[in-house]
């Protein structure tokens, strides 16, 4: 459904990604793990369009979207909860969700999707009128994921959905992600919490220093010894 083909990218003179190729299969959960600074979030920014790659191609549903502006991508079915969630802090939780449905694709079904999001995260219904900046970390994460779902995406991009959450909440969020996959959604996420993420995913990529060092079905990646080597080895 989504392929990155030999992507080079960076910020100004700093090269972050070197020839990264990866794919997300329709109806599966794909996870990218790796230590801090490995370039995981940059990959997601290339997919959502906030970072323009200097080389390589991004192909979504057989269409080359490498040069497509970020704001034209949600209409194709790419929605994300970015690094740091980036909610609109002065707008209410509900308005944040509504904005997720800004494109015609989302707007036509906004009321029904909103109901779906509230059933997925009942807590948000109670907090609908609260400004996003005043929500707790867990609630903000729910709004971030909910806001992405409001776009009626065919692929959901999540950057560190467990970041800053209590362990109980982490397993709750991961359970919700599995629930979404069961509903037919494709998920691509980046996680620091490698072990927990690999357990719910179908396919995984391990990154280091801007490159994919290992990939495969998650059951093959769950070898803890090898993971530890990937995280700490220097070469």
């Amino acid at each position: 459904m989504l392929q990155l083909d030999h992507i080079d990218a960076g910020y100004g003179p700093v090269q972050v990604l070197g020839s990264v190729s990866l794919a997300a299969q329709e109806g599966s959960i794909t996870v990218i793990v790796g230590p801090n600074g490995a370039g995981k979030s940059t990959i997601l920014k290339v997919i959502t369009g906030l970072v323009r790659p200097t080389g390589g191609h991004v192909v979504f549903q057989e269409r080359d979207i490498t040069a497509l502006p970020a704001h034209d991508r949600p209409a194709l079915g790419i929605a994300s909860c970015p690094e740091g969630r980036r909610l609109f802090p002065l707008l209410t939780a509900e308005t944040n969700l509504r904005l997720g449905a800004y494109t015609p694709r989302g707007r036509n079904a906004a009321d029904a999707t909103m109901e779906y999001v509230y059933r997925l995260f009942p807590r948000l219904r109670e907090r609908a009128g609260v400004k996003a900046g005043r929500l707790s970390g867990g609630e903000q994460q729910m709004v971030g994921i909910g806001r992405a779902l409001m776009a009626k995406p065919s692929i959901l991009i999540l950057d560190e959905p467990s970041l800053g959450l209590a362990p109980k909440l982490v397993s709750e969020i991961f359970a919700k992600i599995q629930e979404l996959r069961k509903g037919g959604l494709t998920v691509l996420m980046v996680e620091q919490n490698a072990y927990a993420a690999l357990r719910i995913a179908d396919f995984g990529y391990v990154m280091q220093n801007g490159q994919v060092v290992r990939s495969g079905p998650t059951k093959d990646l769950l070898d803890l010894e090898a993971l530890r080597r990937d995280y700490f080895a220097t070469g």
């Binding site: 959502t48 369009g49 906030l50 502006p69 970020a70 704001h71 034209d72 991508r73 949600p74 209409a75 929605a79 994300s80 970015p82 980036r86 909610l87 609109f88 802090p89 002065l90 707008l91 904005l99 997720g100 800004y102 494109t103 989302g106 806001r147 776009a151």
Partner: peptide, 11 residues
């Protein structure tokens, strides 16, 4: 409030 996040909404 956030130009980049607005773009991610399709704005």
């Amino acid at each position: 409030q956030d130009i980049g996040a607005a773009q991610l909404m399709g704005i």
